[in-house]
């Protein structure tokens, strides 16, 4: 019951946090910025509208938003939030989940290619390339976690006897993981410095250009799915940051939400002070995150942790 409640809360609150990013960016630019609830307004507006479909598209185009939304929901169903057990969990769910996110990406890419637009094809190619590299990093993190904790489930990672947090006795290696997971968060959720959600030139986009032709409720589903995905990654990192003793209870929930908000602030700060990479430098950026975690994994062979 409690799990279901936290899941529902997460699905409702996820669009709130990206508003923080916009606020932070506006602060850095010396502007007032849009209201915190801007994303809810956007969603409501999109849901009221109808859609225009390209004559080039087939049923695959309409499946894209639905599948990517469903995969994002799956991720939240399996992820523990603020010391509360997730709705479902089993040994090995991490592998299943990252692969299910893969199928969401698969259909997003196909939907982009379905429009016959050269720009959307370009975005799709970049998405396919970068997310493949990011997947290597994610699995390296799983390897490291298995070494530290011997489990293959989000719940066991963060809520077992021996949870994985930065404050645990052998947590210093997790510094690597926090840094590289943050890099992966930026990559997978198309944030600066990999992708710029606010740019106006289609040639330089990755994710935004892929969904150019979606409109109305379809676009709303995509946006909502993207918020869930971002929420998932941010929650992942906050679990690493929060000490084990704060898990559970109202205080734990407050600490969790606070940390979560801090991560969104960090994203906003990153976006404000860095410029987007040249496209050919992105693989290097992702490889750096991979190398960081691999460092940590190699160090575990020393019996240091």
């Amino acid at each position: 019951m409690e799990s279901m409640l936290s899941f529902l809360l997460a699905t409702l609150a996820a669009p709130l946090f990206p508003g923080i990013i916009l606020k932070v960016k506006a602060f850095f630019a010396g502007k007032k910025g849009p209201p915190l609830l801007i994303k809810y307004y956007t969603l409501a507006k999109l849901l009221r509208k109808g859609s225009v479909y390209s004559t080039s598209t087939s049923f695959v185009f309409k499946m894209g938003p639905t599948v990517s939304f469903a995969t994002a929901l799956m991720a939240l169903l399996f992820f523990p939030l603020a010391g509360v057990k997730p709705v479902f969990f089993f040994h090995g769910d991490v592998i299943v989940l990252f692969y299910i996110m893969g199928i969401g990406r698969f259909f997003t890419i196909l939907a982009a290619l379905d429009t016959a637009s050269p720009f959307e094809g370009m975005g799709a190619a970049r998405e396919a390339f970068f997310s493949t590299l990011a997947e290597a990093t994610v699995f390296m993190v799983l390897i490291l976690f298995y070494r530290m904790n011997g489990s293959l489930s989000f719940t066991d990672y963060f809520q077992s006897q021996n949870p994985i947090t930065l404050m645990s006795p052998n947590g210093s290696l997790l510094l690597f993981v926090v840094v590289s997971m943050f890099m992966i968060l930026l990559t997978e959720n198309s944030r600066v410095p990999v992708d710029d959600p606010a740019t106006h030139l289609e040639l330089t986009m990755i994710h935004e250009v892929m969904i150019l032709d979606h409109s109305g409720p379809d676009l709303a589903l995509i946006e909502l799915g993207a918020f869930y995905k971002l929420f998932f990654y941010a929650a992942f990192i906050s679990h690493l940051l929060i000490p084990a003793k704060f898990a559970g209870g109202a205080a734990g929930g407050a600490v969790f939400v606070g940390t979560l908000a801090m991560i969104y602030v960090a994203i906003g700060v990153t976006e404000s002070i860095t410029a987007r990479f040249k496209m050919n430098l992105v693989p290097k950026y992702i490889l750096t995150s991979f190398a960081l975690v691999t460092f940590a994994a190699i160090l575990t062979t020393m019996g240091l942790v």
């Binding site: 109808g50 004559t55 598209t57 309409k62 599948v67 469903a70 299910i100 637009s117 109305g216 379809d218």
Partner: peptide, 29 residues
């Protein structure tokens, strides 16, 4: 996953009830 997919499809159907849906060429930027 299949269940959630079906659910999302139904959700999408509900959103599109009584909505204007038209066809046009792909946006060529």
């Amino acid at each position: 996953f299949l269940g959630i997919l079906v659910l999302s499809t139904v959700l999408r159907r509900i959103f599109y009830m009584k909505k204007e849906v038209s066809r046009g060429p792909t946006w060529g930027c």
